[in-house]
């Protein structure tokens, strides 16, 4: 039981509140009305795209604190990350809260990494009592960081993904909240030898398959034990690959599989190629779509596998590969009441 942490049912970390904020494109997607905040201009009151992402992270944590009726002095630790160089958006946007801060990088899987670490921090004897997790991504900042200038005229392949301008914040507590974290498991860096940054779904699918199979095997469960298996941002192509890899192993998830990158946009009206991606994509969709569904009891047990494509533009030019990673977080509705 060392690679997977199953919490003592009496002492499960709980999610007290979640909040989400998105940009204009995401607001016009099918989940638009579910998000707590949106800015049509994508600027969030800032002068540059990098600062806009910081402002977005500030907004989303403020919303979560407000919803929890909590003062910013209450969280003992903050786990946050984004897609910018040196994770600048997170520390710039969140530093002013004065919460002890751990900056994370797990590419688009960062929210899963954050929830994993936050729940471990809460479960440690003498550890934190309240922990916050915030992740963001911004289309414009990510394009500048990983691809080309925004106004550069390039054509994307159909397997390419659209980095979501979105953020999600979660407040975890030892003793409050309707949603519990039953188990967490960090992902493994899974290198399938792929190098095409225009097809990150395929690079992440083996990591999701690896994590899901390891998790189910360790717990002696099958997909049928969950109401939903939610992946981060495999998008259309990556989801097909995941399904194909799992089918080969005799695991069928299709009818209960949801992918945040696929849910975020309307493929008919929005030309996002394979679907959404980015640290904020799975964070905002988890906060706006799945967290409330579990809290209301519409879903009882949900397995959340945030997915990340680990790479850097320089490493790719040097012949490096795109590795995938997929931390697992098992969420469940709190039963009865104590």
């Amino acid at each position: 039981m060392s690679r997977i942490t199953v919490f003592d049912p009496a002492r499960r970390p709980r999610i007290l509140a979640a909040a989400s904020a998105v940009g204009g494109e995401e607001f016009h997607g099918p989940l638009g009305p579910l998000f707590d905040y949106h800015d049509e201009s994508d600027r969030f009151g800032a002068d540059t795209w990098e600062h806009a992402e910081g402002a977005l992270s500030h907004v989303v944590l403020s919303l979560a604190l407000k919803r929890a009726g909590m003062d910013h002095r209450e969280p003992d630790v903050l786990f946050a990350g984004d897609l910018e160089n040196q994770c600048v958006a997170s520390h710039e946007g969140l530093g002013s809260f004065g919460i002890p801060y751990c900056g994370l990088y797990g590419a688009c899987s960062t929210v899963g990494e954050g929830l994993t670490l936050a729940s471990l921090a809460l479960s440690a004897p003498g550890g934190a009592r309240v922990a916050a997790v915030v992740t963001t991504s911004h289309y414009c900042a990510a394009e500048r960081q990983f691809r080309t200038p925004l106004e550069y005229g390039s054509q994307r392949t159909p397997t390419a993904q659209w980095t979501a301008t979105a953020g999600g914040a979660f407040l975890l507590s030892r003793d409050r909240g309707e949603v519990e974290i039953e188990a967490v498991m960090p992902g493994r860096v899974t290198d399938a030898g792929l190098r095409d940054p225009g097809n990150m779904g395929a690079a992440m699918a083996p990591a999701a398959a690896d994590s899901l199979l390891r998790y189910l095997e360790a717990r002696g469960e099958g997909p049928g034990d969950y109401d939903a298996i939610v992946t981060g941002d495999l998008a259309k192509d990556g989801s097909c690959w995941l399904s194909e890899l799992l089918t080969k192993e005799g695991v069928l998830i299709r009818e209960r599989h949801f992918d945040c990158g696929t849910l975020l946009y309307d493929y008919e009206k929005q030309d996002v190629h394979a679907g959404g991606s980015g640290c904020g994509c799975s964070a905002a969709v988890l906060a706006a779509r799945f967290f409330p569904a579990i809290a209301r009891g519409e879903m009882r047990r949900v397995l959340f596998l945030a997915t990340g494509a680990l790479m850097s533009p320089s490493s790719l030019l040097q012949g490096g590969h795109i590795s995938g990673i997929a931390p697992v977080v098992c969420l469940r509705r709190r039963e009865g009441d104590v």
Binding site: T190, D191, A192, G193, L194, A202, P206, D210, L213
Partner: peptide
């Protein structure tokens, strides 16, 4: 499990 079967890259 090792999810880089030699044919995966080719199939992708």
């Amino acid at each position: 499990r090792h999810f880089s079967p030699p044919d995966y890259r080719e199939r992708v």
